[in-house]
Design a protein around this nucleic acid. Structure first.
Lengths: 239, 239
DNA sequence: GAGTGGTCTAGACCACTTC
DNA sequence: AAGTGGTCTAGACCACTCC
């Protein structure tokens, strides 16, 4: 005999999920407060939160920390096999992209940079940190490590747009090969704050190593995406 | 002034995470019971579960429903741009793959099959459902829809191994193009049970549409992976 | 200042697993 | 039969947001 009772938290989850799918709750709409939901469904607040956290992990709703719960917008399609910039990709899907520079510095290469980018420990590296938004909502924080030998003065150029394009136009660097890696990981407290997410919340961690036409590693990018933003989509030809 | 207190559930999370990273808790080790952890850390059981669920969402631990919490093994690298079979890929990474047939039937094409596979509504479709394991742990359930016109009698052949290979060797079908899509989604109760996961738990939902040398759609595969199993990894050449 | 979400307690019952 | 995890209650305090 199997367990047939449907728990309260799943009933609330299903009820809200249905409203979202039907469209009676639109993207970016704020849900009623947890205490209102508790009264409306006559269950405990802990149980309400269990339902909300489940919906959050599914990507149907998101929260702004200490402000409330909101209906998620549709996912952004992302094709890692095509080298389309964030700005172009977001615009192509009818949405509004935005980029904010969080910091840009020249640093001494750490052990880790040495291993991943083949730059001598202590030699200079550019570190650029950006936050990117879609329709006003922060969706990712990225740390971009660039080899300054290949593009001196990069940090003095405008950095809000596609880096790949700047590298090509200003330095003649063509990215010819990219190694991409991704998996879910927890956000550390700094990035969590920058994404207005609770510390330790899961994100999609994506790294991208970009090599130029001479197979030098130009750029090593770490991207921390909100876990509910992307839908990976690609076409593969099996030659 | 920012919130500086570290909550109890994160302290327990960090303590367990440290033991896992250090290697003093090995993959597939069972954690102490929730009540033991509650006593050891002198916190409430609800708080213990909050820590455990956080670790679960990060992929550091997993649970066998109603049996307990276990340390997760390393992720499996998966390169969607290479057409390597599950069995080969798992073996290449030094682990033991296994496949279980859950069901195989010939069905009448539904509306949905009609739209995705271009088979007339009501015409026959093969549906094959398999569960796949790594080192004895169920990691994915897949629903494979195949066009029987292209490979009559397929269901009477052995189906535990690579379907792609069977299609090639027995029917001369070469998969030349694949459209892949993936994003996190909740498991429905059937697949949740088959993966021994709580209903509604998040999984990685991956679809794969495979086209043959004449661009007929041969196979439409829906895969439900445990969310903590894969690390996507690929190399892209920007021609 | 009122209200909200984030955290936490000290219990409880049930279905299921383990012995 | 004992123990475990899954669910749930009825409170509580705090930091922060909103008005």
């Amino acid at each position: 005999m199997k367990y047939l009772h449907i728990p309260y938290y799943l009933r609330l989850r299903d009820s809200l999920a249905k409203k979202i799918e039907e469209g009676s709750l639109l993207p970016h709409t704020k849900l009623p407060s947890e205490r209102d939901l508790k009264d409306a469904y006559d269950i405990n607040r802990v149980t309400v939160r269990q339902a909300l956290m489940q919906l959050e992990s599914e990507g149907l709703i998101y929260r702004l920390i200490r402000r409330g719960w909101y209906v998620s917008p549709p996912r952004l399609f992302y094709d890692p096999t095509k080298s389309v910039s964030f700005m172009d990709n977001v615009r192509a899907q009818g949405r509004v992209p935005e980029t904010v520079i969080l910091s840009k510095t020249e640093m001494a290469a750490s052990d880790w940079v040495n291993r991943t980018m083949d730059i001598a420990v202590g030699a200079p590296v550019y570190l650029l940190r950006r936050r990117r938004l879609i329709d006003g909502r922060a969706v990712l924080v990225e740390h971009i490590n660039v080899n300054p030998v290949l593009c001196p003065g990069l940090l003095d150029l405008p950095l809000e747009c596609s880096l790949t394009e700047t590298l090509k136009e200003q330095y003649g660097i063509k990215i010819s090969r990219t190694v991409i890696n991704m998996y879910p990981a927890p956000l550390d407290s700094t990035q969590a704050e920058e994404l207005q997410v609770v510390a330790g919340a899961p994100c999609l961690y994506l790294t991208r190593a970009s090599y130029d036409q001479h197979d030098n590693i130009v750029e090593f990018d770490q991207e921390f995406w909100r876990h509910d933003v992307l839908e990976i989509s690609m076409e593969v030809n099996n030659a």
